[in-house]
């Protein structure tokens, strides 16, 4: 048996890991309930007055409640993310387009993913992943802002409406906000497909412990990663 010598890098704090899995659950619930809200159908036995049907286990009212509850859980889980972000450098691996490494790394990964380079340099988080995560955070914030813009208008005099209501005007009208919310939800799902694939791929071919890192917080490298500077001073 061949023995592999690796160095252990503590990348993600427990707070980021908790956030990650809360986010996974919340987004799954948000997407499924969101699809229903966008194109609903009657669930339950026919011939019931709406007064009683609203108490069905899966009425529009219930499903909307689940959607809003999941949205609040996702928003609250950001507290963990922010705490980790402040606490530990490994939780701060942002895209850094002002560095040379970001662009050489991007080229490196591009060539590797298009099968033109059989191996890529070791990274704690490669440039493409950094850009992708930056993008998905952007999409989540866009969903949150458009979501609260619509939700807050239930009571146009509430502070929530005062805070987010102007977004409805910024984007022409509220109908456009609905559409953006709907389209971006699909884009997040497309991101999830790529993300799950890329993580699995990296885990299987590179043996850095890509997937387990989101449970244990550590990654294993035989060579020192190029972006180790983001972890150590």
């Amino acid at each position: 048996m061949k023995v592999r010598t690796v160095a252990v890098y503590y990348v993600f704090t427990i707070w980021t890991r908790i956030f990650h899995w809360l986010m996974v659950g919340a987004i799954a619930v948000l997407f499924c309930t969101g699809l229903y809200i966008g194109n609903p159908f009657y669930i339950g036995s026919q011939g019931v007055e709406p007064t009683f049907a609203v108490n069905n286990w899966a009425s529009m009212s219930t499903i909307r409640f689940i959607h809003f509850a999941a949205a609040y859980i996702l928003m609250a889980s950001f507290i963990f993310r922010i705490y980790g972000f402040i606490l530990h450098r490994g939780d701060r691996m942002l895209p850094k387009p002002w560095t040379k490494l970001f662009w050489t790394g991007m080229l490196d990964m591009g060539l590797h993913y298009s099968f033109l380079r059989s191996e890529h340099r070791p990274y704690l988080r490669n440039s493409m992943a950094r850009a992708g995560y930056g993008g998905v955070y952007g999409m989540i914030f866009l969903e949150a802002f458009t979501g609260f813009a619509m939700y807050g208008q239930i009571n146009p005099n509430s502070w929530l409406s005062k805070l987010f209501g102007p977004i409805n005007h910024l984007l022409l009208d509220e109908y456009v906000v609905h559409i953006i919310h709907h389209y971006v939800a699909w884009m997040i799902i497309l991101f999830v497909i790529i993300h799950v694939y890329m993580a699995t791929r990296a885990d299987m071919s590179e043996k850095y412990g890509e997937i387990s890192a989101m449970f244990s917080g550590v990654k294993f490298y035989d060579k020192e990663p190029d972006d180790v500077g983001d972890l150590k001073e």
Binding site: P40, F41, Y42, V48, P50, A53, V54, A58, S59, S61
Partner: peptide, 9 residues
């Protein structure tokens, strides 16, 4: 609105 909340469309 009650029809909306009950999912009757």
């Amino acid at each position: 609105r009650p029809f909306f909340d009950s999912g009757m469309f």
